[in-house]
């Protein structure tokens, strides 16, 4: 009896490890940009090394249906599975596209490991896309678009271009890349952003009906020279919507946080 339980436990563990090792790995050098789109379930993106592109999933192998009829044929459309994990990975020139199937599937979680230096663009505006993308520790240039999916991140540096219609955008930067501007926009979701307290930036915070909170001391910029000839030397008091712009820590790269109805929380850590 004891032996039977032990054997069962060993088998169960083996099965579990088998699951977690459900992965695909390839090395592709000289890639400039990675486009990730239509990923079902939740998506986690992490850093890899040495041009390694790695995909892991906790999906059960039985869930990944292999079409017998495709044997010996080369796929023509981009929406096919060449990783064995339900996703396709296609290289074209210096770009790599990783995309999911054109079908609704909310189960499973994918983790994609990407090499540093590549530009990352995640497009989850397709209705088949999952509801969460999380990015951990990437120093890459990032672009993320979602409809209702949330965007979470930690220890990133940007530059970031995030846009969500109704998803929340929240997370922390380990540093703010000064090479290019960063812009984060959510229409009705909230924006909760933490940055190191010594971050240098020229910030523009704007919300139409949401409230804006800042942990940073924002040095207000001098009002722009008014271009309205009638205004002459009068200072412009209000711009478009509720807008606060100015420098933090003496100014640096441009950082734009905008929402329509979501609140904006701009934290220093």
């Amino acid at each position: 009896m004891k032996h039977t339980i032990l054997v069962i436990i060993i088998f169960w563990l083996a099965w579990q490890t088998g699951l977690s090792q459900n992965q695909y790995e390839t090395k592709i050098p000289n890639i400039r940009k990675v486009l990730i789109e239509k990923i079902p379930g939740t998506l986690l993106i992490e850093q890899s090394q040495n041009n390694v592109f790695k995909i892991e999933t906790d999906k059960e192998p039985s869930e990944i249906v292999e079409d017998e009829r495709t044997r010996g044929l080369k796929p023509v459309t981009s929406s096919y599975d060449n990783t064995g994990l339900g996703l396709s990975l296609v290289q074209s020139g210096s770009n790599v596209t990783i995309s999911g199937p054109n079908q609704f599937d909310a189960t499973g979680n994918y983790t994609i490991f990407l090499p540093p230096e590549v530009e990352v663009s995640v497009d989850l505006t397709n209705p088949f896309s999952g509801q969460l993308v999380e990015i951990r520790g990437l120093k890459n240039s990032l672009e993320v678009k979602t409809l209702s999916g949330d965007i979470k991140f930690s220890n990133i540096t940007g530059p970031t271009v995030f846009h969500s219609i109704s998803g929340n955008i929240e997370g922390s930067f380990s540093d703010l890349n000064q090479e290019a501007p960063s812009s984060i926009i959510s229409i009705s979701g909230l924006i909760d952003l933490a940055m190191p307290s010594n971050t240098k930036a020229e910030v523009k915070l704007m919300s139409v009906s949401g409230k804006i909170y800042s942990g940073f001391e924002i040095e207000k910029e001098k009002p722009n020279k008014n271009k309205d000839p009638r205004a002459g030397e009068l200072a412009q008091i209000s711009g478009i919507g509720q807008k606060t712009s100015g420098k933090i820590n003496g100014g640096g790269t441009s950082l734009i946080l905008q929402s329509i109805s979501g609140n904006i929380y701009f934290r220093n850590k």
Partner: peptide
């Protein structure tokens, strides 16, 4: 293709709206 860029362009055009 990026709304963020389009929005930045709109803000940049504000000064020429005269």
């Amino acid at each position: 293709p990026s709304v963020n860029v389009r929005l930045a362009a709109a803000n940049a055009l504000h000064q020429f709206a005269v």
